[in-house]
Design a protein around this nucleic acid. Structure first.
Lengths: 141, 141
DNA sequence: GTGGGTGCAAAGACTTTGCAAGACG
DNA sequence: CGTCTTGCAAAGTCTTTGCACCCAC
């Protein structure tokens, strides 16, 4: 429920000593209502007509603040554009190697913790699954 | 064994219709002998004194060629610098959230394939594990 | 009021591209 | 020898920073 997430957002923004501004609220709502893990540029393109005054710079700065506050996460990618996710609890991602789409995968991989602990103390794990999405598969006829 | 990998390298480079040049050989040897998944810049820094003529441009182009030939892979990251791995068979990575180091994790996660197949046809999966490496943990005293 | 937030423009980091000269097979 | 590759410099992306103005508390 988006409403609950917005309340949570307000609480955590305040808790981080940050102010709640229309721009921050708009960025968060946009990212939280989308499933496609947008980049800063994509968020800006979508918001510039809705929100009277918002700049790409502000979107970048907002994402940095929200990341620090633990409200959004970066999604690991192979390319050079940073993409964000408003789901911060553990989950995984499916990446289409044809169209580049990234979708959530509700799956927490089972791993042998001892293997990881040889290297260090794990904090979080995520599975990145690469493949061809249903839409691209359909076009392959 | 690095020697075997170099032979494999030569075979696959030729098979891809590419030429074997000292620059390509040097880049591949360097990346294959390291465990730290270097970026183009890091490879260049290391090679520029060893190899008479090598430019950063060539390193970038070589990595692109080798990636197409299936000899190196990009490692998913949260930052904007692309990092490469000469291990192309399935494996995972441990990323230190303090020092940024990325090390191989010999672990193939067990997943429920049906969950993935709802989204598309999987090709490869890799686990990204974030945490604090032993060295950084030691410094935390 | 005051400290944080914003927008603009400029700078910065990383990567790619055009072109002429050179090397591999 | 012809074609692929290289190096240099310039251009291109994506992201961050400096600075003056503005806003909420």
């Amino acid at each position: 429920m988006l409403k609950d997430r917005v309340e949570e957002f307000k609480r955590r923004v305040k808790a981080s000593g940050l102010k709640i501004t229309p721009q921050r609220l708009a960025v968060y709502k946009e990212i939280a209502s989308r499933q496609d893990h947008p980049s800063a540029e994509e968020l800006y393109e979508r918001l510039k007509d809705k929100i009277e005054g918002i700049s790409l710079t502000t979107v970048y700065r907002t994402l940095a603040s929200l990341e620090k506050a633990g409200l959004v996460q970066r999604v690991p990618t192979l390319k050079d554009k940073v993409r964000y996710d408003a789901r911060v609890e553990p989950h995984s991602h499916f990446v289409c190697i044809k169209c580049g789409k990234i979708v959530d995968l509700d799956l927490i991989p089972e791993v042998d913790r001892s293997k990881i602990e040889e290297l260090g103390e794990p904090v979080s794990c995520t599975l990145m699954c690469y493949g061809i999405c249903r839409e691209c598969k359909g076009e392959e006829t």
